[in-house]
Design a protein around this nucleic acid. Sequence first.
DNA 1: GCAGCCTACATTTTT
DNA 2: TGTAGGCTGC
Length: 773
Amino acid sequence: MSDYIQELNEEQRNAVLYNDGPSLVIAGAGSGKTRVLTYKIAYLIKEKNYDAHNILALTFTNKAAKEIVRRVNKDIGRPWSDYIWMGTFHSVFSRILRREAQFLGFTSSYTIYDAADSRSLLRTLIKEMKLDEKVYKPNVVQVHISNAKNHLVSPEGYANSKEAYEADSAIKMPLIRDIYKRYKDRCCQSDVMDFDDLLFYTFMLFRDHPEVLIRYQDLFRYVLVDEYQDTNYAQHCILLQLMQGKTPQLICAVGDDAQSIYSFRGADVDNILNFTKVYPNTKVFKLEQNYRSTQTIVCAANSLIEKNQRQIRKEVFSEKERGEAIGVYQAYSDVEEADIVVNKIMELRRGQHYAYSDFAILYRTNAQSRIFEEAMRKRGMPYRIYGGLSFYQRKEIKDVIAYFRLVVNPNDEEAFKRIINYPARGIGDTTVGKIIAAATEHNVSLWTVLCEPLTYGLNFNKGIVGKLQAFRDLIAGFIADAAEKNANEVGTDVIRQSGIINDICQDNSPENLSRKENIEELVNGMNDFCAQRLEEGNTHVLLGDFLSEVSLLTDQDSDKEGDDEKITLMTVHAAKGLEFKNVFVVGMEENLFPSGMAGESPRALEEERRLFYVAITRAEEHCFLSYAKSRLRYGKMEFSSSSRFLKDIDVRFLRLPQDAVAFRKADRETGSPLFGRKESGGMRLKQPIIAPTVPRNLKRVTPAVGVSGPASPAGSAASHQVQQGQLIEHERFGLGEVLKVEGEGDNAKATIRFKNAGDKQLLLRFARFKVID
DNA sequence: GCAGCCTACATTTTT
DNA sequence: TGTAGGCTGC
């Protein structure tokens, strides 16, 4: 047996060596899952003499796919890994769909709508149907259609479904079925698929064309699936199709039900929970040794996840050192919470010589990042925030990509609409509206109408005709170009000749400079892509090849500077699959984590708990939990109690905040005891903090004027409008009465008499308080 | 056709 | 706060 197999522990090795039928590898957090996958691929090729192209390995992210490719290359050498069918579900299926497009009425150069494109199309359709946009909100409709596709329900099926109709009627949107139908027709007409279609049509292809299915069944002799807990119904069914009628069914699913956190995108934990029922004779392997975290962290995480009903029981353990208890901090406000975290980071760095990159701050919502950002900026600590607008969602990048899309597929409606008048060329909404109306009426694409407006009853004046003609010639020129030149050359032509670069270089505002940089980055990407393809022996790199790669890429994997010396800030979702020496899970409050959106639904709460589990298990050495009793959310001061999840962790693994300064202070100020309930273990567990109530002895003076100003997802400070005589609650000084207000705008000051802190003059711009009703 | 003002709205987000 | 979309007036 080869050396590399010896490096594995017994259970990992068993999982790698078993290849006689379906297998399910339940891989606990930090248990070496990727290792098993890559070694298995290496083993199949090297020892079992599989041809690389007979192996299909599916992942959920490009990043994971890349990592596996990298490791397989290392283990077995490059020549093999190039031929493995490896990639995300979406990229592998889109490859298949391009080959078999004719079976489905598409061309092989179909383009792909991202979520924004499909929302935009839905908005147009809703308008065309003269429905009320307030009732038929495009994103709500989108979720319904997406769900239907993920459950393999076609527009016809949807229209015939009584339940769907009743459910939609109940939410006052009975016509979703009609929108769905139109949406599908429009996509077909535009030769376009959205993300969900890539799965939906693959299923339909295999279902309606058995001869095609058999071809792929024969091709994919062994199928491996990573992160199986995140598969949705459609993916599950496609895998079933590929396995259908096969003996043995050579499928190996790797995953961890405890880390299923994407149900809002259609992922269904049941797929992994029921795997053994769906594939009879499945051999189950449980990787239970955690190589990442201290025993304390592993035990704490176990005690938490134990509270979930629906799960595959396992005993995750660690043989690393025992480690310190998980620290719990309570802050009075979100600002103080950030201070506590930042101080703790400095303390740990001093004491144990950690690098900044050894720390991660994880939160439930992106909006929470702002306060931590400020705290770190103030102290000059380097940090990096993940999330926010991704590279491919930036306006300038989407604009360029839209040109590419139109060149590859002139029928692409959303791309057409995006650039017909960008940069401005005097073709306004009215003209475009007429084109769309004519196209809809005659069931043709916008491009078809553009080419022959007269044929479709559009009699534009001379000026407009000239402008339309110019646009058409521009695109036609690019199309001709693309037939001969390589993608990067066509790309630079597009950027220059379309006028985009001129538009951006008009002035040197910082925004424009960054836009320019982004476009340069895209050009670099294209050059790299082409260079690589040419190196691989291609003679002509099609623009379409670049486009289909880029359409399925998010910038998750484009961050080259991942290892620089910075503190990491990200949502818990984004942290999945990563690990850090020290992790702070912040905002541990009811309605925030678990999210208020989860309500009391047991399923949703279990997923939130899994999310918390994922957060904790990112930590190798130290883990800290913190919460704030009050925070500004969307401009409003909110008071909340600590998260119910804090009570799910066995107190033996927690260090409760007796000695935290913040804790004592808050305790003193509110007069509410933090320890109350007795736990069975003999230790006292913190009681949830109840929102402070207004003492009766302070009289109310004027009617409330609430904290004014629009709300913000960034969770930043709101402006205040206060009047003399109002009663307020300040984040630090507590209750007070406004004595005087002077100055205006940014300089407005208020003199406030605090119940416990005496008179203070506050610059309203910086003051954080709420006006009490 | 388009700049500029006003209003409504705001989890998480692998593809 | 920030953004997207709608509306208005030039």
